[in-house]
Write a protein that binds this DNA or RNA. Sequence first.
DNA 1: ACCTGAACACCGTTCAAGT
DNA 2: ACCTGAACACCGTTCAAGT
Lengths: 181, 181
Amino acid sequence: MRADARKNYDHLLDVARVVVAEQGADASLRDVARRAGVGLGTLYRHFPTREALLEALLRTSFDELTSQASALEAASPPREALRSWLRDCVAFTTAYRGVTELMVAAIEDPGSALHSSCVALRAAGTRLLVRAQADGTARTELDGTDLFALVAALAWLSDQPALAPRADHLFDVVARAVLTS
Amino acid sequence: MRADARKNYDHLLDVARVVVAEQGADASLRDVARRAGVGLGTLYRHFPTREALLEALLRTSFDELTSQASALEAASPPREALRSWLRDCVAFTTAYRGVTELMVAAIEDPGSALHSSCVALRAAGTRLLVRAQADGTARTELDGTDLFALVAALAWLSDQPALAPRADHLFDVVARAVLTS
DNA sequence: ACCTGAACACCGTTCAAGT
DNA sequence: ACCTGAACACCGTTCAAGT
């Protein structure tokens, strides 16, 4: 990548971080380009789709969550590892409003730029789930996709201003449905 | 209301039903007016906001759910009444894609045209919940708003094409967290 | 290679002008 | 009273023209 292109790419990403934090996953791309002081075509050249931009924005966090799963697997008992990883997932997904919806769509669309990150996330969760199930501390009628769905639903709840205050409480309620007491 | 106005009103509602079923709650209002063969201003005259249009579209179903709650309260044991009402709620909210989000926002916004319907719905759910709690068949750490939130989350899950196939299964999982076994 | 911005086809919302 | 559609300020996306 040419030096000027690299500079634009990085700057666009910085600006996008701010704008997406403000407006959510359906933020105006025009606004991103404008605030970055860059032509609209430049944004599209670097990020051909909205997913591509969000993927670049989220990749680091995704990777952290995946490796966090491994760390917890090594360090904590199965039940606690699963529970605290679910918490982390919900918290992360809440960072940018509306991202959950895109993640859910991406997990079934191999063409999406977010696809592989989401699949990796689900795989990490599945490992923790299976481990807890073998331990007898997670219910056996759930699989990794169910877990992904429940995290998504909780993240969605946290995104709703009217319900955000009960998000923690509802996490406990749903966690009880996943884990055995 | 003048006869011609009435005719436009009814026809707009019929067309909106189709378009919202197709495109979801964020359907193009322009498209509704166009397909109804009516000026855009006419739509705005009859339905000053998107919520007003959706409220008119959903009022009947809302009322049915509320009276269904009373019927179940009279006819079924507390636990079964609550459970099957929750099912009905999720099924209804899934009729139009994206309606859940608006309902959740409306419940805290007295200015929304959907506000009173949502409050009535929550009240109906609360009655069934309290009854089951008194019966010892529903967990006591939940209140009506929690119930509303869980229904909304399940309805949201059903709206996601990638997760819809597990919606029934996940309903069971969440229901287990609400009811005592 | 890369960037720019005009062009196109869409929105939601308002409001002057018509009947 | 009621209806119409142009007008305005926004989108996302593409692509010819420039450097």
